[in-house]
Amino acid sequence: MPEAAEDSRAVRIQGVEFAYPGADRPLLAGLDLALERGELAAVLGPSGVGKSTLLNLVAGLAVPRAGRVEVLGTEVTGLNESKAARWRRGSLGFVFQQFHLLPYLTVSENVALPLALNGQRWEEEAVRSFLERLGLGEQAASYPRHLSGGQAQRAAIARALIHRPPVLLADELTGNLDEETAVAVMDLLVEAVEELGTTTLVVTHAPEVASRSHTRYRLSHHRLHREP
């Protein structure tokens, strides 16, 4: 059974080992990580070292072959698929590298989707107000195809934060953006995280993104190494 207990740490990973089927060597081995509630942490590393896999392990989308993943007092590795899906809807926000906005929904409808999936009542005006805070008020009725890259990324951040999740995961948050837009998007994320107290884990290859975090790690040789 999953465990539940109050702890100052929002995320705790202990001795995790992960390997893809058929791989000769594990992608991650002996990996440990602990994040305090409200902490903004960044994991640096080049493509292919397992940064996205790390996020998937925290989200319960990947299962380690050894070790333990605990988020908000719940042992994620102890959840079956249906329980994991319900837990993710209520506890996590996820910003994907490719945005994954639904093309047939307006920006407002895309952002409100987590509220609908959680069975929460929502009003158009409340969602629009949230979008205005992220500089997207005028795009509320637009469809994703009409957005710039920066606008689409802000919409993805708004969708991830609209239900005020206690934990936010972000995969290469600014990977598809120019430098100026990337800085603006990171500013928005930091502001939102500080306001909501959301524990946030960002994986990135960009030092300028990592520099805005409270703590920084580098993923290499299968493990996380704390940077000064």
Rank of each mutant, 00 (worst) to 15 (best):
L161S: 09
L161C: 12
L161H: 10
L161Q: 08
I162L: 05
I162V: 15
R164I: 02
P165M: 11
P165E: 02
P166V: 15
V167W: 12
V167E: 04
L169H: 09
L169R: 12
A170E: 09
A170F: 09
A170D: 02
D171V: 04
D171T: 05
D171G: 04
D171N: 02
E172W: 04
E172N: 10
E172H: 04
L173M: 09
T174R: 06
T174D: 15
T174W: 13
T174Q: 09
T174H: 15
G175M: 07
N176F: 07
N176Q: 10
L177W: 13
D178V: 13
D178M: 12
E179Q: 15
E179W: 05
E179D: 12
E180F: 03
E180H: 09
E180L: 07
T181G: 10
A182Q: 02
A182L: 02
A182T: 03
V183A: 09
V183S: 07
V183M: 05
A184R: 15
A184D: 13
A184Y: 14
V185I: 14
V185Y: 12
M186G: 03
M186Q: 08
M186H: 05
D187S: 08
D187E: 11
L188R: 12
L188H: 07
L188E: 12
L189G: 03
L189C: 06
V190K: 00
V190D: 02
V190A: 01
V190Y: 00
E191T: 14
E191Q: 13
E191M: 10
A192G: 06
A192C: 12
A192L: 06
A192F: 03
V193Y: 06
V193T: 13
E195C: 09
E195K: 15
L196R: 08
L196K: 11
T198P: 05
T198E: 01
T198Y: 00
T199V: 04
T199W: 00
T199D: 00
T199K: 02
T199H: 01
T199Q: 02
T199N: 00
L201M: 02
V202L: 14
V202F: 14
V202Y: 08
V202T: 05
V202R: 01
V203T: 08
V203L: 11
V203H: 13
V203C: 14
